[in-house]
Design a protein around this nucleic acid. Sequence first.
DNA 1: CATTTCAGTGGACAGTTGTTCACTCAGTTG
DNA 2: CAACTGAGTGAACAACTGTCCACTGAAATG
Lengths: 223, 223
Amino acid sequence: MHVDSVHRCLLSDVPHTRVEQKAHTRQALLDTALRLLEDRSLDSLGLRELTREVGIVPTAFYRHFPDVASLGVALVEQCLGGLRTAVRAVRDGIADSDAVISRSLSVLVAQLHERREHFRFIARERHGGVAPVRRAIREQLDLSAAELATDLLTRRLPHVTALERWEAQDVRMLATLIVDHVVQTAAALLELPPGDEAAASDTIDMADRQLRLIALGSRHWPG
Amino acid sequence: MHVDSVHRCLLSDVPHTRVEQKAHTRQALLDTALRLLEDRSLDSLGLRELTREVGIVPTAFYRHFPDVASLGVALVEQCLGGLRTAVRAVRDGIADSDAVISRSLSVLVAQLHERREHFRFIARERHGGVAPVRRAIREQLDLSAAELATDLLTRRLPHVTALERWEAQDVRMLATLIVDHVVQTAAALLELPPGDEAAASDTIDMADRQLRLIALGSRHWPG
DNA sequence: CATTTCAGTGGACAGTTGTTCACTCAGTTG
DNA sequence: CAACTGAGTGAACAACTGTCCACTGAAATG
């Protein structure tokens, strides 16, 4: 029960270099927190509970974060940062398809299955009880919206003609609407009972129609 | 410090009938909870903390609710129930205006100013850590969406022609999109610094354009 | 007027929480 | 090889938590 605590023995082994050890424990803290927050909110997560689960003593927590809120913003950056690069990679992958919308949506659904607790955490803490975490999420989502906006401007979408002649704020408006809707859809999907495939495809179907309606509106903007 | 506790003395006075007293204390619990939850989430609210603030002994709480979660769903019903009737009254008030959207939006903003903590609670707990509360909110929002759907079908909106020939699920799809967007806008407004009027009007302006874009899409549906 | 009802009392229970402190001892450094 | 650094230790602190229990006393009941 000394230096070789639980999380050290079990996981990726031998590198006993010091910085790697620290990074490893830090990651264990983040992962365990994400797991514990599957059906609770961040400000009900106790420092002791977390460290107990990780297998270290409470005070060791302070070597990595000053408090739980900081752990929260680190978690946000890891979740949404990784998600953004993933989405970007996919967007770069498909050159320009005709059905960009339903394509992107199915990508989202796939991401949602293999990163459930990431999405859940973001949806839960977006308007949650910890102010710094809220700010961090807003920052990342704004960044995502900005990326989507330039993406919309760069490639010619088939249904959105003459987008390049829009006002800049209108492009941003559209991107924000889409991002918000996607996050909202993800949250809705996550609250469904895990087995219910029928309800899930219903939700996805509705989200798809909603996105198409938005695209339809964009085509005729500014009316 | 006996029977005539704090909340009894201060607020609406003499009716010492028993059921009124109980209802009064119950309401004090709800109000105080709403106040305490201004910048925290529900599952970090302690039973003792709440009763201490109300001015009753911890165990007295159980005379009104079996646990904090139940207090939460009661709060949801009070917030969203009241809000729904308020919105309905306003909608019945204006016969049919040309600018329904921006009209409704300014109504929302007005409601948002005089019921800040109600909206904040709903936005925070919608995807928050307490499952029964989440379910209650979803129920109420679905109800709101259904009301809006029949409202959209009943009165002829100027910009949404031939809505009565839509599929039922499409009307619901539109109503859900609008309700979600309104809730989202409310949450965004609430997270702004209270004094910043410029940022607020920016947000409102963007929400207005987004709603008009949705209406524009509706006009051309199903494309 | 005697009896019942029940919202609120107050104390005690065993757990939990965040933070402090001096400490150990493996990995790094000069 | 000796000195240093710093991630993790373990005990102790005061304060807090939810829930149990027998109780009081005013309003309601018949």
